[in-house]
Amino acid sequence: MILRLVVAALLLFITLPTVVVIAVSFNPTAILSFPPSGLSLRWYENVLTYPQFQRAAVNSLVVTGAAVALALPVGTLAALALERGRLRGRNAWAVLLLSPLVVPGVAAGLGFLILAAALGLLRSRSVLIAAHVALVLPFVVRAVWVSVRNLDPALERAAASLGAAPSHVFRRVTLPLLKPGLFAALLFAVVVSLNEFVVSLFISNRVTEILPVAMFTYVVNYTDPTIAALSSLFIVATFVVVWLADRYLDLARVFLQH
């Protein structure tokens, strides 16, 4: 009974900010007040018609799409190498690959900024994409690594004994068996990249900025529920992605193994 109460309280605590934001987004007046004084969709309309948000949404899609498309194969190969390769200093490599998790965003952002400036890339999205690859890589490596670890090497030997050349073994056995890890990696990479803010703030401008940065800029200049509406859309989108993944993939299994 007490345990149940604790869990309920915890859930409330975790979800409360989200609930508040969603409630406020329907406020008919331009004040961020809670509880809302009525129901209105005007801030949603504002979100969808605000040009800077449109541009940022496109940027977000491009940056996240490109970053994930790059990080997935790279991270998969890294995970395979970490588990299978005859690596010297395997642990050092692992720490290096997972390090973006522990480097403060500000430090990473500053680093990318200086680098990008030196390379004259500050006006393009490529530096954002590069940064996002680095930031999502730890999640990709981690998720795929779990799957690689659970892969019985005897299966690949069996395939070889049946006549499959190494490339066929990879395509017909290794890759299909890594699927759960790859899906988890994809999911994490998308969510992390879409929500990335600190590092992106350092290296984007009005033309290249992604949604979270655009939202921040908006908040700095205006205080109306538009941002709450956009946040709500964001939350719902993320929720749908995770829910779909959970439904089709059994996330708990992917993450609780080992």
Binding site: A154, S161, V173
Partner: peptide, 20 residues
């Protein structure tokens, strides 16, 4: 010669059937 070119058949201790 690599295993896939040896033309042998093997039954593994764990069977190693492809689960997928």
């Amino acid at each position: 010669r690599p295993p896939h070119l040896r033309g042998l058949g093997m039954v593994f201790q764990s069977y190693a059937l492809f689960p997928h």
